[in-house]
Design a protein around this nucleic acid. Structure first.
Length: 519
DNA sequence: AGTGCAGTTGACTTT
DNA sequence: TAAAGTCAACTGCAC
């Protein structure tokens, strides 16, 4: 009979607040295992920058576990094959891991692992690490469960692990050894729990003071946001410890007479709540990674290789959009507002299917979190049916959040000498001005690939026409009941969402007020 | 000093 | 987490 407890590390690369590790270590010898799955890293949403971040975290995790007596064991291959080998060698008593709300590939892989464990009579215990509820019978009461989880005590790391004799820890492959092409992330943020903690304490004690002011500014957000997203995605920090630290700091700031600063931290905590809210959608409906939540919006967009390539490389001819894309390529991170703008431009002005633009962004995000990412792709593309259509005006965003053009000049050197009055819309330069500033459109920088305002107007008309169509609201109501936030009270109905509804032509009452939360 | 008017601001609605 | 349009209240100014 087996005696080893396998702790399978996935996107939870820490030893603090790690329930599977704690529970396993109470029961017997632990085999801490990470499986490098080549097939996972060949998926369309995976990239070299993500592996590089994961790899650094693994190196530090291995040290932390070694200090407890048993270093991280790394094996390369298909998970079931690796587990089967471990079982033959040691005899596995129990498999432990965190629940993962991953993409379709990891979902299918987890089902294979479950089937294998069942066939071998090995129990597999999964523990939650976010506010995601599995299975979720209904959205009612969800926020309360999130709160209960985040408020429960942090689990300290085990004091020691019983060493397993004669186990080769195995090497952690480099980006090249895993066969991943370099993807130009020349300024990626540092990984590993120790770096995550340094970043976090810097935010708590310093930069969170500027959080609210700088959140939407793509240049300043880099140093005024928490930058914890990748650490939360790869699990080097646990959300629970972040929430609890933040609340403690908030109390301290209030006691010190800093209410505005405390409010900024509160806003930050609210975003962590939304983090789980969006992950829950993919947990409940894995198909939203691939197909439109509202079926009436399926097949609306048309894929154009040229438009997709121009957008992907930051060569659309709209400087602020291109600067955002090029900064994302180089750093692997972008603030929320500009991520939404990039998607909005792809889905509306460029009329591209969100799945294609979404895959490109997924690869560029070091902090790629499937549940948030695919929910956001659908939301910013108007395909959920339950959110209002938000078409960003990239020129307005440029003037609001980069009025002096510093961000654009930094990321688009070819525009360095363009006069300020033309910078955000260089197509307004006449030929003579272009030659004088060394930026000839079509030669040094692209001419706009579409007429931005006409394209936005066309997209808006198409989407709103669809929404007015028969049965659109009825279908949307069902989606709202399943996925909608309950924060504001009852789920909104099509009527309360503002669809032109009610009985028309009878001369009587056209609308009932169903929204009891008004006023 | 009060009135009328153009332009501005902010809340709210529609797309 | 949008943007544009509408409308009423407000402001500054000329008479």
């Amino acid at each position: 009979m087996g005696c080893v407890h396998v702790v399978w590390f996935k996107r939870d690369l820490r030893i603090v607040d790690h329930a599977p590790l704690v529970e396993a270590s109470c029961r017997g010898p632990v085999l801490p295992l990470y499986v490098v799955e080549p097939e996972l890293w060949q998926q369309q949403d995976a990239s070299a920058r993500q592996w590089a971040f994961c790899r650094e975290a693994l190196v530090e995790l291995r040290q932390a576990l070694a200090a407890l007596g048993m270093p991280l064991v790394v094996r390369r291959g298909e998970v079931v094959a690796v587990l089967a080998r471990a079982h033959r060698h040691f005899g596995v008593a129990h498999l432990w891991s965190h629940e993962e709300t991953g993409n379709g590939w990891t979902y299918a892989r987890d089902r294979r692992v479950a089937a294998w464990a069942r066939s071998q009579g090995i129990p597999w215990s999964e523990r939650p690490q976010f506010g995601v509820v599995r299975p979720l019978p209904s959205r009612e009461g969800w926020a309360g469960r999130w709160e209960a989880r985040m408020a429960s005590p942090i689990l300290p790391a085990p004091v020691a692990l019983e060493p397993l004799a004669a186990v080769d820890p195995g090497s952690i492959p480099s980006v090249a050894e895993l066969g991943l092409a370099d993807d130009g992330c020349v300024a990626r943020q540092p990984s590993g729990r120790s770096n995550g903690l340094v970043q976090w304490h810097g935010f708590l004690t310093q930069s969170s003071q500027r959080y609210q002011r700088d959140l939407s500014n793509p240049a300043r957000a880099v140093s005024s946001c928490s930058r914890l997203s990748a650490h939360l995605s790869w699990g080097t920090l646990s959300m629970r410890e972040v929430i609890q630290d933040s609340r403690g700091r908030r109390d301290q700031l209030l006691a010190q007479g800093q209410p505005a600063w405390a409010l900024a931290l509160h806003r930050f905590e609210e975003r962590l709540h939304w983090h789980c809210h969006f992950m829950q959608k993919l947990e409940d409906q894995p198909s939203l990674e691939f197909s439109e939540l509202h079926p009436h919006t399926a097949g609306l967009r048309e894929l154009s290789a040229d438009r997709l390539a121009a957008w992907s490389l930051g060569c659309t001819g709209l400087p602020f959009v291109d600067a955002c894309m090029r900064s994302l390529i180089a750093t692997g991170w972008l603030n929320f507002r500009m991520r939404a703008m990039l998607l909005s431009v792809a889905s509306y002005q460029l009329w591209l299917p969100w799945r294609d633009s979404g895959l490109h962004l997924a690869r560029l995000f070091v902090d790629y979190e499937p549940g948030i990412h695919w929910s956001q792709c659908q939301m910013q593309s108007g395909t959920t049916g339950i959110n209002t259509i938000r078409i960003y005006n990239p020129l307005k965003q440029a003037l609001d959040h980069d009025p002096r053009g510093l961000f654009v000049r930094r990321w688009l050197p070819e525009l360095a000498q363009v006069p300020a009055v033309h910078l955000h819309h260089p197509w307004t330069m006449d030929g003579e001005t272009q030659r004088r500033c060394g930026c000839v459109l079509g030669r040094d920088y692209p001419s706009p690939i579409v007429d931005w305002s006409a394209a936005a107007a066309l997209a808006r008309d198409r989407l709103w026409a669809l929404r007015r169509g028969a049965e659109f609201g009825t279908v949307a109501d069902a989606i709202q009941r399943r996925h909608g936030s309950r924060r504001a009270g009852l789920p909104k109905t099509a009527l309360a969402r503002g669809r032109r509804g009610g009985v028309v032509g009878d001369g009587g009452v056209q609308q009932l007020c169903l929204d009891f939360n008004q006023r």
